[in-house]
């Protein structure tokens, strides 16, 4: 059986979730490998969410929210950006590299960008292969 990546996406309600809605209303298609978990803001996304996703079987995690300056809550995405810029390096240092954690700004108007993003991430993870049962961050089932 071919490997189908499982991608968990954490997105904000105001930009990326709406952007993904637009992808739908525009009938643009993308790979069915993504599962979206909606949050009010990227500022809400705790690093624990990412670890939990990997633990539970995700092959990659996508985090997406409003472009800088567009945050519905004024600065939630800036808080998120700073958090991730350090956390992703810590993940990479401990073996979870940039083929596993993706970040993007997708506005409510960027339906096409969302479709392209999902396709690209899916392809990249497909090429990288399964997250790996042997990785310590993964629960042994």
């Amino acid at each position: 059986m071919t490997f189908e990546p499982r991608i968990t996406a954490f997105v904000c309600n105001w930009c990326t979730y709406a952007g993904a809605d637009l992808t739908g209303t525009s009938r643009l298609s993308y790979a069915p490998n993504i599962r979206i978990v909606k949050l009010p803001c990227t500022g809400r996304i705790d690093p624990l969410f990412v670890l939990k996703a990997f633990e539970g079987g995700a092959d990659a995690v996508l985090i997406s929210g409003c472009h800088p300056g567009d945050c519905h809550y004024a600065s939630g995405n800036y808080h998120a950006r700073r958090r991730w810029s350090l956390f992703r390096k810590l993940l990479a240092f401990t073996g979870i590299d940039e083929n596993r954690v993706f970040f993007s700004w997708v506005s409510a108007a960027e339906g096409q960008k969302f479709a392209n993003l999902v396709n690209k991430v899916t392809e990249q993870v497909r090429a990288a292969g399964p997250f790996g049962e042997r990785n310590l961050a993964r629960r042994r089932l």
Binding site: P40, C41, G43, R44, D46, Y73, S75, G76, R83
Partner: peptide, 17 residues
């Protein structure tokens, strides 16, 4: 306003949304 940034920066998870 319910953005939840506080919850994510709380190390002991004492803030929830």
């Amino acid at each position: 306003q319910g953005c939840g940034t506080c919850a994510a920066v709380c190390r002991s998870n004492s803030v929830d949304l």
